[in-house]
Design a protein around this nucleic acid. Sequence first.
RNA 1: GCCCCGGUAGCUCAGUUGGAUAGAGCACCGGAUUUCUAAUCCGGGGGUCACAGGUUCGAAUCCUGUCCGGGGUACCA
Length: 554
Amino acid sequence: MLLKRNTLINSFKKYIYQEIVKSLNDLDIKRPESEFSLSSPKHDSFGDLSSNISMILAKSLKENPIDIANRIKNNLIEKKIDNIEDITVTPPGFINFVIKATFYQNQIKSIIKYGNSFGKDRIGKGKSANVEFVSANPTGPLTVGHGRNAVIGDTVSNILEWHDYKVTREYYYNDAGKQMRVLAKSVESRYFDLINKPSEFPEDGYQGEYIIDIAKEIIQSFGKNLHKNDSVFLSEAERVIFKQIEDSLKKLNIKFDTFTNEKSFYDSGAIEKLLSELKDKDLIYEKEGATWYRATSIGGKQDKVYIKSTGEPTYRLPDTAYHKDKIIRSYDLIVDVFGADHTDTYPDVLSALNALGLKTDHIKILIYQFVTLIRDGEKVKMSTRKADFVTLDDLLNELGIDIVRYFFIMRSMNSHLDFDLDLAKDQSDKNPIFYLQYAHARICNIIKHGEGQGFKFSDNFDPSILNDENELKLIKLMSNFPIIMHTALETLEPQNIANYLQSLATYFHKFYGTCKVITKNKELTQARLGLIFSTKIILSTGLSILGISAPEKM
RNA sequence: GCCCCGGUAGCUCAGUUGGAUAGAGCACCGGAUUUCUAAUCCGGGGGUCACAGGUUCGAAUCCUGUCCGGGGUACCA
């Protein structure tokens, strides 16, 4: 099938596409090797769908593309294609299709009929997905960067769920490594400070205020007689911090299904087993007291250390065992959400798995770039070690869930994110999230107002009378929702949805400016109620996928 | 040095995976409210898509090189 992926879901496009192919047959033109497009042009003046078929054929046919286009056009016109109002040819050789308004108008009925399932292609039905995100070790409160991770991961999960995937949200952590030892030492040191005993704060210790709070809690619960290296320092620190992390995530309305501890792969012998499997493939060797992974033999740039000369493994080894485990759990799709600092880490993991004969095509790694906070027009400096950072909690307390979630996904994850606190905090029309939510609230208010005037929404209306320019634009945009969702599924990039909803809100507000819904014209009122009702459905569906509320009133 | 991401309006960013005349928001200027919510709408100015080549009917988009910013870089994850 030469059809472009995006267009597959739209059966009407598929139909037109086939009609073009048939015309080629009729005209005795050989179908081109490369695929041709059929997509919405940027400008409405070119119609609703345009194809580049004749430009692609021009070379092999040695014929002017406009002439080819006209031949195809004439053949198509003769055949009288359903739902096509007009076909035009424009330079340099596009064939443009104008779709009948009724085709779009009828979509409103579909939206109302299918509600928040409108446009679902249920591609994930019967399939499972695992989305691993956040995965911060419990060494301190979640930061702004983790926030971006959390919101991307959860929204991606929502996108998958909307397509009927069964999604497991998974949090992976390590409470046994060096980081945690330093954490315990930091708490221990603060503990002895508080009870006026000599202590030594570790060189790379965690300097945040929260460490002192944990030490205070330990004094409360365990008294002042703890000795150095007591395991309580670690266990309490982990317990308290994990509680904090879960609370922060809860405030973002994020709930994990599984927490997986790196330690479990040591306990189960999985790591041992992985090592011996790799050894059998001659991918492991010893050098300078360390154990190395021979990445170079499978196309890697350089060999990597698996076990340090201190006897402690690097992250690669358990990470590979963990991913192997996820593969064995046989998900149809495995998604990892990593920060840009992890860019270099995953290729080794994947290559080791491949070397063991495991398929990794269904593992999708999403890398997001860093977040910079902007306050008063200036970058907020952040140092993790000194705990000189704004936490995710601070952000949530200051801004609330809707704004935080929206700001984290409104930009492409490939781009560095400038999080403008002043804009986010602004409760006025400058803030893009309100623009969106206001559209929804406005619709709710009109519906309410209509009820006060004796109009009740009913699906029994005639959509063909919705012929105002702003009505048609709104209707056409809503018809595009399935394509947007399909793109979001393929790319796993939530900002597509955010951008789409912004345009939808724009088109609605424009409609509102020119068309009054509740009028004395009963038939028109019912039709327009149908229109705004379906707009409300798309808006609230999109917002709920983004994890943002759709207020009835503002 | 090498690898990854980015460079588009004064600022922050989109750009449907190669299409036609480059798009928003903010900021700036001017207008609209006896109205279903003005958290809105309408109009205006503002561009060498970092730069230079290449690929082709056609490039912000793909390839090569250069410059700038961010991240990583072999026993920290």
